[in-house]
Amino acid sequence: MDTEATDLPPVAFSGSRLNWQDLPRHVRSRIAALAGAQVSSETSATSGFTPGFAAVLELGDGHEVFVKAVSAEQNPQAPDLARREIVVAGALPPEVPAPRLLWSHDDGTWVILGFDAVHGQSPEQPWRPADLDRVLVALADLAVARPLTPNGLLPVTDTMADDFRGWRRIACAPDGPRTHSAARFGERGVWVMAHLDQLADWESGWAVAAAGTALVHGDLRADNVMLDTDATWLVDWPLASLGAPWLDLAFMLPSVEMQGGGDADALFWAHPVAAGVEPHALRSVLAALAGHFTLASAQPAPIGVPNLRRFQQAQAVVALDWLRRLPA
């Protein structure tokens, strides 16, 4: 992909969702039993990358439930992510605007989760200022939330330790693959090659910068937000961890700028959670994030998620541009 082209931002959707009738009969029967009523209709989710089944189900008793159902056939990692989301759901305090997990089932092949059905839509693209303001307020509230105890959440320094070594891995790669990877980014790739050792050095400090005890969603983007008339819902929590309270803002802003929401650096420093953040800490985390997106976007597409790599590369472009704008 030519990242210098002025094409539209990639769509955050896997394109491989299952419908109700695609589910095996025993899975449909289990869902109906867990929900306590027969399913009369479905409204499929139209955003997000996780393959499998994701839909609001209307039940014969008039109630609704949002159901996810995944197996390794759709994607080898999907069941473990669903299992992780079950653990995270038990750690979310009531003040966090996340749909409540009602029930779950894991037969070793299919993992099924049933949530309160919440309504609304993902923010329009490009971002409208009023929508972005609502999400930024929700991030300020999330930054002061603390998970319930005891819980099974891990420090972000553990959950992202392998992902946040991108520049160091690229620096150790043979010249051919390294040059080919840089070429995907045009002029930005030239800058990366000239500053690779510095990027790896910045990245190496991310764990110290990111450590903390705040609840971190870890994967916030427009497609993981739902805006109702009077509520802002943060959804899809399998990557949640413990870390610095400003991480979700920093992690989300490359996608916000990519989708027309404004300058990521200006938005970061204007937000309340940025108070007291050292510029070198932001640089380290941003370098790690940019390295992760850069390296991940060069990998083959995961099974059932064909659009993910293009989305990651688009975020890498914005993260690199933000990194280059930071004061020396």
Rank of each mutant, 00 (worst) to 15 (best):
R178V: 12
E187H: 09
R178S: 14
A194Y: 06
T149K: 07
R146S: 02
V190E: 15
D175G: 04
P150E: 13
G152T: 03
P147A: 06
A161T: 10
D158P: 02
D163L: 10
L153W: 09
V192W: 07
P177C: 10
C172D: 11
G166K: 02
T159S: 14
V144R: 10
G186E: 04
D163K: 11
T179V: 12
M193N: 13
W167G: 01
W191R: 05
D162E: 14
H180S: 12
P147L: 00
W167K: 04
P147C: 00
A182L: 09
V192M: 15
A173W: 15
C172A: 14
T157L: 03
G152L: 00
P177G: 12
A183K: 07
L154A: 11
M193V: 05
G189K: 07
T149D: 06
N151Q: 04
R168C: 02
A173E: 15
S181D: 10
L148E: 04
I170N: 09
A183M: 08
L154W: 09
D162Q: 10
P150I: 00
R178K: 12
G166R: 01
G166T: 01
W191K: 01
H180I: 09
R188I: 14
D158C: 06
S181C: 10
R184H: 06
V156K: 05
A183V: 07
A194N: 13
T159I: 08
T179N: 13
S181G: 14
V156W: 11
A183Y: 09
L154E: 14
P155R: 07
W167Q: 02
A194E: 15
R146W: 03
F185A: 00
P155C: 03
D163V: 06
G166P: 00
A171R: 12
G189T: 09
D175M: 10
R169E: 15
T179F: 10
A161Y: 11
R168Q: 14
A143C: 05
P155T: 01
G166Y: 05
L153R: 01
R165F: 06
V190R: 13
A173R: 08
F164S: 00
A145K: 00
T179M: 12
C172R: 14
G186L: 01
R168Y: 04
